[in-house]
Structure formats: structure tokens, C-alpha cells
Computed example of a mutant assay.
Amino acid sequence: MTQDLRAGGGGPSASGIGSLPGSDMPAAIRLVFDGLGGAPGVPYLPELPARGVGADLAGRGLALLVDLVAEVAPSGWRVADRPGRDHARALSHLRRDLDQLEEHTQGYEGPLKVQAVGPWTLAATVELKHGDKLLADPGACRELAESLSEGVAEHLAELRRRVPGARLVLQLDEPALPGVLRGSVPTASGFGKLRAVEEPVVRDTLRRLVETIGESAPERVPVVFHCCAPDVPFATFRGAGAAAVALDWSLLTTRQDETVAELVEAGVGLYAGVVPSLDPAAKVPLRYQDVVDSVLALRRVGLSARQLAEAVTVTPACGLAGASPQWAGRAQRLCLDAARALADVD
């Protein structure tokens, strides 16, 4: 249920999508916990892609794989025969990040969200050793998903050891999934498109990952599926066992209203990306009440303001890696202030 995602056992909350600007992880962790470390905040392990190779979305996901390694080729990440410098760099980033998180969270008790790239976005990004992207090979996709499932389960177990007071939430990032379902992912050459993957195959792969994580955990770990692209596959995520779906609120269309209402009524939460991810160009400052109004505009789907407030975790529209440090901090405070205001909605 949505209440499993909350800082205080129910009601609206606030969080971030994951990425932040800069390369200073201790400072990023402090920013997150200073902004979201109190109720109803859901702090998270930051991602700092500005650090380069291995700190990007795909690199962090590849660092989690079991018995699969990759290297950086001129065209991007590619499956490799043995661990090399690029793989070692990705592992090093992740291990240092966990060390610094553990140091900062001594005695912490409360929710903690961690992010990992989903199997379909990873398959649409990484190339085989000799050939096209992993997405072109159904067998390679299955192997990748199994490896990622095992690696994520181990990652969560490591976080439990390091932050024993944390109630973990897992976010799986699937920005490429609409393209996987449509058949619009470019081939490695860029001259063609890879064949669409059937929706039941996509859904079942994601569901197995969720089940693997659940079976390996001593307590339930809610899984949030994040997709900041248009045409979020809500039904696929719901069928895969999503506890919540994270999305760019500005991309919601009226034809999706009924689907969103069904999600909320079924107890699936919404990570509502209503705060801009980049510094706003407007001279008029964004207020937390503007954020609240954006959330409550979804009453058009027939839900009450209270139903919406209970279902929502307020977040930026997407990651904050491209924002200024000042806006990154301000954006998180806006999310938290808006969540507190939503708690008072009747």
C-alpha cells in the first residue's frame, strides 16, 4: 500500500528522483538529509553523474550486476569478457558512496530510498560484445534481468547492514521503456530501430525482479517505477507489482486520467514530479502553494483532494543533475513544504 512509502506511516511525503549536481558526495548526502531527513521526507542515496564514467545511470546499474561486466567503447557501454578499468571505476564510486552514506546515517531510523536502472533501459543502452544492443537478443535480456535482480538484492542487503535503522524503498528507473514497447529504440548503428518487445514479456520480467527482491528481503521493500518520458506505461508497472509510479507531472495527459485514477484507487502511489528539475527561468519565485495546486489539479480525474494527498510523494520532475546547487536545495525544500501543506488538505 502507499503508506509503506511514507516517512510517518501514512499521508503525503516528499523525496527526490536521485541525481544531484556536482561531484562532492558527502555534500550531496548532507543536502539530501538536511532537506528531507525529517517527516514527511524520504531521503535517498544521491547519484552524481558529473563524476564521469561509472557514475552515470548505466554505469551504476552495471556495477550491480552479478557475473556480467561491461566496458566503455566509443559508442558507449558494451559487454566485456573480464572486468576492466571502467568496471572498477563504477564499483569504486558505488562502494565509496555507501561508505559515506553509512558515516552520515549513524543512528538514523526512517525511510531511505535507493535507485537502480531497470533491466529494459539497461538493455536498450548497453551493447553486446559483437553485435547490436542487448535489447536485440531475448536471451541476453533474460540473463541481464536475472543478473540485475540478484545484484539489486545484494545491494539492498548491504544497505541494511550499513544503515540498520532504515526502511528501504527501491526506485527502478525505466526512462527507455516506452520506446522499448513502441519499437523506437535505435539500433547500435543508429540507422534502424529495434523490434518492439511485447508488453507481457516486459511486465513479467519486471514482476520477476520485484518478486526476487521480495523473496530475498526480511521485510517488504516497496518498489517505485520511475519513467519521466511521455506515455508512461502505467498498466505495465501496476501489473509488475509497483508500490508507486514516479513521473513528470507536466507530461500527464487527459487520456491517462482514468488510468491514474485506477492506480490510486488500487493503492498504488504517485511520485508526483511537480517541481522543476532545472532552475526556473521565470522571475516570479515558485511557491510551495503553487506545487500543492499542481498536485490538486488532478482532482479532474474524480478523486478527492484527500485521496490525492494520501497517494502522493512530491518530487522534482526528474533528476537534479542539471540544476544549480542552489536550485537543487531549494527544489527539495519546496517538495517538503508542499507535502506538509498537503497533509492539511481535507
Rank of each mutant, 00 (worst) to 15 (best):
V185A: 03
A166P: 11
A157E: 14
L172C: 10
G165L: 04
V185K: 02
L156G: 05
R162S: 11
P175E: 13
G179L: 13
R162I: 00
S184K: 01
E158V: 06
D173H: 04
R161D: 14
G183L: 02
E158R: 14
E154M: 11
L156H: 06
L156R: 04
A166E: 09
R167N: 11
D173M: 10
L156A: 07
P178H: 08
R160C: 01
E158H: 08
E158L: 15
P178M: 10
E158D: 15
L156D: 05
P175G: 12
V169F: 11
R161Y: 01
G179D: 15
E158S: 15
V185H: 04
L168Q: 09
R182S: 13
V169I: 15
V180K: 08
P164H: 06
R160P: 01
L177H: 12
P186A: 01
P175S: 13
V185L: 08
G183Q: 12
A176H: 10
L156E: 05
R161V: 04
L159S: 03
R160N: 02
Q171M: 14
G165N: 03
A157V: 04
R182H: 08
Q171L: 10
R182G: 01
P178K: 06
L181P: 12
A157Y: 00
R160T: 03
L159F: 07
S184E: 13
R162T: 02
